[in-house]
Design a protein around this nucleic acid. Structure first.
Lengths: 207, 207
DNA sequence: GTCTATAAGAAGATAGAC
DNA sequence: GTCTATCTTCTTATAGAC
């Protein structure tokens, strides 16, 4: 990997652990294996490194969303898939997605960095809400709307239903971020959540 | 108010906005209306100020929990109260609690500070989880268990039910923290959440 | 308890050799 | 592109007068 790219990687790791202000350029340089002044041949300032990470973050979200079909463009089609799955399969899918977001290094570091920097400027606050609330909620909302219209799910406001499905998952994810040693316990709770949701919201044709 | 106390107040305000590392003792002093060196007559270091805030935070939580009967000691009694209320009253109570946590300066600043500092040490991570997940969940869990046993609520795992009730409220709260201008919109969503929860989980005797 | 002056050191960034 | 040496500025903290 190029030095320029490796600087971004190591900086992201450090920023996600300590926050921007607690990371010194010398630390980033050391992690990369060079001295601090060399770093300035690649980026003109520490802030410039942060901005580059943010740019990367924005474009990577699009890639990731496309990968997971979570860009909101095809929720109807996904709903068609969901409508065929059993409760066990729903659990498997939910857990799989959860594990991906929990363990994917890139995703986890982005999430932590945005978490600790969210109040440092309004642009980051908006990005945070979009990424971890708006986008997933709008996608799931579209999916639940389709499922409701087919009578597979109880006929409730899909936006609220999405909130009730997603918010617990997100809370458990952030708990795992803080206390990774509790992953097993929290994952079990996640599974219970999905099963109970499926029972409570299932229409005649239980999903 | 004593200078010593005012230092804590102003420091908390600044820490919650910018994070510990981005706040300089000179800024705290200026907010209090004194010069930085004077501050060292009250606290021996910047870290000492942070620790004092943390101590205050811990004890204030106990006071607050007692005030709101949210210390888990009396969830059964609260359930008795809940079992008598209508859906409208449940909404009113939920919104009231939400508004308190959203607008109470102390509560909001604590929450923001803990949010941005949660990964800086394991003790803070644990405190965060306790305060914003474990405690509220265990309280509500006890309450829902009582409601279930009385047939007022569907007979589901109370821990999961609490998660599904609380996590959406907490998510909306953090969204308001980031983008206060969206309060009206998000509060409306909160009300829908409570109403839908009440419908979905209501037993024969709808709460 | 508050001030001014200042020490001590950390951290971002640059200069210029290789 | 990387290094050593260095500059500059910022920041915590102390000394000592009032």
């Amino acid at each position: 990997m190029s030095t320029k790219k490796r600087i971004l990687d190591e900086a992201l790791t450090l920023f996600s652990q300590k926050g921007y202000a607690n990371v010194y350029v010398a630390q980033i340089a050391e992690a990369v294996g060079i001295k601090a002044p060399s770093l300035y041949k690649h980026y003109k300032s520490k802030q410039d490194i942060f901005n580059a990470i943010l740019d990367e973050m924005k474009s990577s979200y699009d890639r990731q969303a496309a990968l997971l079909n979570m860009d909101g463009s095809d929720a109807g089609a996904d709903a068609a898939v969901f409508s065929e799955v059993s409760e066990d399969e729903l659990v498997k899918m939910g857990l799989g997605l959860f594990m991906y977001f929990l363990h994917d290094e890139y995703a986890q570091k982005f999430r932590k960095m945005l978490t600790v920097e969210q109040f440092s400027n309004p642009e980051l606050a908006e990005l945070f809400t979009k990424q971890y609330a708006e986008y997933p909620l709008s996608y799931q909302s579209a999916m639940f709307a389709t499922l409701s219209s087919k009578g597979i799910l109880k006929d409730c406001d899909p936006k609220v239903t999405a909130l009730q499905f997603y918010a617990p998952m997100y809370m458990l994810l952030t708990m795992c971020d803080r206390e990774p040693e509790r992953e097993a316990e929290l994952t079990a709770l996640l599974e219970q959540h999905i099963r109970q949701f499926s029972i409570i919201y299932g229409g005649e044709k239980r999903i």
